[in-house]
């Protein structure tokens, strides 16, 4: 049984690391996003292997079902950069510098620390095979409303603020949007044009400022 688990762990680890490498190296951003999803899946599988079922499901629900979708959406909305010919990585010495930093961090800092540190792993239960007492979903819920209530509420506030902030940031000015009127609306408009309501605005009011035009691509090039 131990061998089976080791094999499964090895496969999952290979999936996670391989997919992550693909995420940062492939040229096509869409492919990178898809590899990212594969990586998230691997992490979810690892959670299952670690017997954190709820977290595995949440991983799939949030990362695969929401965040990766969000990323793909953002790629679609900024689609002109997905071409294969565009250079995706920084060039020259900067690339080598970052690669060196990452590799050194891994080889010098993380691996020796992890290996050399003696972890205080508790002894497994006396007769091997008896299920370990594991905290489940109920304990998780209880922890949120007793022990970590403040943090829970802060997280809720954070999510709300993030939601509002995202909307505010990504909100497009109404005046910039184009919308095709329905027949009923156009009919209504024609009716109003035929019988204009009395104008209340004073005559001396200045004309509204012209709408800000988005910066064209040519200006960006300069």
């Amino acid at each position: 049984m131990a061998t089976v688990i080791q094999i499964i762990f090895g496969l999952i680890a290979a999936l996670i690391v391989g997919a992550a490498v693909m995420v940062v190296t492939v040229r096509n951003v869409i492919h990178a996003a898809l590899w990212l999803i594969a990586c998230f899946f691997g992490v979810g599988a690892l959670y299952l292997l670690l017997e954190a079922e709820f977290l595995a499901v949440v991983q799939v629900l949030v990362y695969v079902g929401a965040i990766s979708i969000l990323i793909l959406f953002a790629i679609m909305l900024t689609r002109q950069v997905t071409g294969e010919g565009v250079r995706q990585l920084v060039g020259g010495w900067r690339l080598w510098l970052t690669a060196a930093i990452s590799a050194l961090l891994f080889a010098v800092a993380i691996v020796p620390t992890v290996i050399s540190h003696s972890w205080n792993v508790p002894a497994p239960p006396a007769p091997p095979g008896t299920p370990e007492p594991l905290a489940g979903v109920a304990e998780l819920g209880r922890a949120f409303v007793y022990e970590f209530l403040l943090q829970f509420q802060v997280a809720g506030v954070l999510l709300t603020v993030a939601l509002i902030g995202a909307i505010v940031i990504a909100f497009e000015e109404r005046a910039r949007r184009r919308r095709v009127l329905t027949l009923a609306e156009e009919h209504e408009l024609r009716k109003r044009l035929a019988h204009p309501p009395p104008v209340e605005a004073p005559a001396g009011e200045p004309a509204p400022a012209p709408r800000a035009t988005p910066i064209s691509e040519g200006e960006v090039q300069q």
Binding site: I37, V60, V64, G65, I69, L72
Partner: peptide, 9 residues
Amino acid sequence: FAISSISAV
């Protein structure tokens, strides 16, 4: 529902 959200991908 977590699984059903995968098909969106």
